[in-house]
């Protein structure tokens, strides 16, 4: 008699093996990051120094802040390609306001508010015409960049007062301000996603938007709010970036949307929506930051650096798919 036998080898315990696989899959990002950190510490004397680590954190902080909004959007099963353009838009608008004599705090708040309107538009069009945000924000990306170039005629806005430098280059308790901003925004973001009805609505809508709508959630409102938050965060990043550069350049943030999306995906958020964590995103951002930093320290050919980043993203995506299936 023939049998369709696929019997499990009696020597191994399938349950505990499964648990180990599962643990490794769930924590692979942390494990690999730890290995990377240890190897870099051994390979380079300059890696594990306060100065270098601070440097990495400050470098990643800008995109990390935008990634908070992007994580929410991807959990919502949407995408936002316009974040880089909003960065430039805000940098320019804020610089022009300050030059026009508007006090820096007022200019900052106004710029963030105006930037968030771009998100309101993207969210509204997405929700009310029932379009995928990929299409809407693809258009918005070009549109906002165009508006930004038009405002400045293509030139950077420079000649900003020295006080403005503090915003992006200052320190608090010895820590660069961008790192402080990042930390605060992550803490608030994690709280919102975990504890508030708004955060829970984001997960539910991303998981099944029709079920969420039929449960009485205001799906359109949540979508618009999430796009507005992301645009506001992008605007804020544009301001601190222009403060560090002491100029509002319309060229800022080009192709940032891809870096930010990559960090979110590396951090384990599913493009299908409904699942993902901000802590994961932060680790994703750090991963890219550490890898880039390490490759610079080890003097890796810049072209090869791109190859390595590409492999990292590919690996993370495959890992997430394995995780989903296990």
């Amino acid at each position: 008699m023939t049998t369709q036998a696929n019997k499990i080898n009696p020597g191994t315990d399938p349950v505990s093996l499964k648990l180990v696989t599962r643990f490794l899959l769930n924590n692979a990002l942390y494990v690999v990051l730890a290995i990377l950190v240890v190897s870099l510490t051994i390979l380079s004397d300059n890696f594990l120094t306060t100065a270098n680590l601070t440097n990495i954190l400050r470098q990643v902080s800008f995109q990390a802040i935008i990634a908070v909004g992007m994580t929410m959007i991807i959990i919502l099963a949407q995408i936002d390609l316009s974040v880089g353009s909003v960065v430039a838009f805000a940098a320019v608008v804020n610089a022009l306001m300050i030059k026009a004599g508007i006090p820096i705090p007022v200019a900052l708040l106004l710029t963030v508010a105006i930037s968030s309107l771009w998100g309101v538009i993207s969210g509204w069009v997405t929700a009310y015409f029932n379009l995928h945000a990929f299409l809407v924000t693809l258009a918005m990306m070009t549109l906002i960049r165009g508006v930004t170039y038009t405002i400045t005629g293509g030139y950077p806005v420079s000649g900003l007062p020295m006080e403005f430098l503090q915003l992006g280059s200052g320190y608090f308790a010895g820590i660069p301000l961008p790192i402080i901003y990042m930390a605060v925004i992550y803490i608030v973001g994690i709280f919102v996603m975990k504890k508030t009805p708004f955060g829970r609505a984001i997960y539910a809508i991303g998981g099944n938007s029709e079920a969420a709508r039929l449960s009485g959630l205001n799906v359109s409102q949540v979508k618009i709010a999430v796009f507005a938050i992301t645009a506001a965060l992008s605007g804020f990043v544009g301001i601190i970036l222009s403060s560090r550069l002491m100029a509002g350049s319309p060229e800022l943030g080009i192709s940032w949307e891809l870096d930010v999306i990559a960090a979110v995906i590396i951090g384990g958020t599913s493009m299908f929506g409904g699942s993902g964590r901000l802590v994961g995103t932060l680790v994703g951002v750090l991963f890219v930051g550490v890898l880039t930093n390490g490759m610079i320290l080890l003097d890796v050919n810049p072209y090869m650096q791109q190859v390595a980043k590409g492999l990292l993203i590919l690996g993370a995506v495959i890992l997430n798919s394995l995780k989903r299936e296990s």
């Binding site: 997960y203 539910a204 998981g207 099944n208 029709e210 079920a211 969420a212 039929l214 409904g274 699942s275």
Partner: peptide
């Protein structure tokens, strides 16, 4: 499709 968020 309309009642549950299956992955939650």
């Amino acid at each position: 499709e309309e009642g549950l968020v299956l992955d939650h």
